[in-house]
Design a protein around this nucleic acid. Structure first.
Length: 231
DNA sequence: GCGACAG
DNA sequence: ATCTTGTCGC
């Protein structure tokens, strides 16, 4: 079932900023972690030469972290990359991929920030609002906030806050790797976001859901091209 | 004015 | 995000 339209996607960067300010108020980051058996990981791979992207959603079973369903769509890039406005570029194609899913994930994990964002409305928040489902942002690099280096062991975490307000955590997803920035997207609190992340760690820097989505998007890109690299 | 800036 | 092979280390 397709989600209820929240707003128009054909907007300018300036309008996008206004929309973020408007919808940030609808984000719920106080919900306690509920039962969840299926987690969907999302990621996008960009074509090297054309303004085309491949959005992938991989549903993972929490019990054994095994993938149970994969959906990928090829789409044209319709919004420029602007720090702080990533969701306007990646949410539309992810929604398309999501619609072809037959299973119903209990939570969604994305490559990007949740409320650890300049206007408290990162990629995970935006998708969460559209899907009206719990989402967690797991970014590879810093965007906003202050934090201390987390411990060296997988699972170790340190609070991430903006002006003294906790917005997430910096988590060591695996031993010996740089930490990832975890923050709630929607319908989940900071503790829940971190707890979920810890449950789906698979020994690599990226949690299993987003790791598999990343691989699926790359595979689609490799297969989606009709013209092989020319010498 | 200068520096910073998810993917 | 993306261009890129081998190589060092657990």
């Amino acid at each position: 079932m397709s989600p209820t339209p929240l707003h128009d996607w054909d907007v300018s960067p300036d309008q996008a900023v206004l929309l973020q300010a408007e919808f940030a108020g609808r984000i719920d980051t106080s919900s306690t972690l509920a039962k969840f058996d299926l987690i969907a990981g999302c990621d996008i791979a960009y074509d090297l030469v054309e303004p085309v992207l491949y959005a992938a959603v991989v549903v993972v079973r929490v019990a054994d972290l095994a993938p149970v369903e994969t959906a990928v769509v090829r789409a044209g890039v319709k919004f420029p990359y602007v720090p702080g406005l990533l969701s306007f570029r990646e949410v539309p194609p992810l929604l398309s991929a999501w619609e072809s899913l037959r299973s119903e994930p209990d939570l969604v994990m994305l490559d990007g920030q949740g409320i650890a964002h300049p206007r408290r409305f990162g990629l995970a928040c935006h998708l969460g609002l559209w899907l009206d489902r719990p989402t967690v942002g797991c970014a590879k690099t810093w965007l906003v906030g202050e934090y201390a280096e987390p411990g060296p062991t997988a699972g170790d975490a340190a609070p991430l806050s903006v002006d003294g307000v906790p917005v997430g955590a910096v988590v060591r997803s695996a031993t010996g790797v740089r930490p990832v920035f975890v923050s709630p997207g929607h319908k989940i609190d900071v503790a829940g976001a971190v707890a979920v992340t810890r449950v789906v760690l698979g020994g690599h820097r990226h949690p299993v859901p987003t790791r598999l989505a990343h691989m699926a998007a790359n595979q689609a890109r490799a297969a989606g091209r009709v013209d092989p690299p020319v010498v």
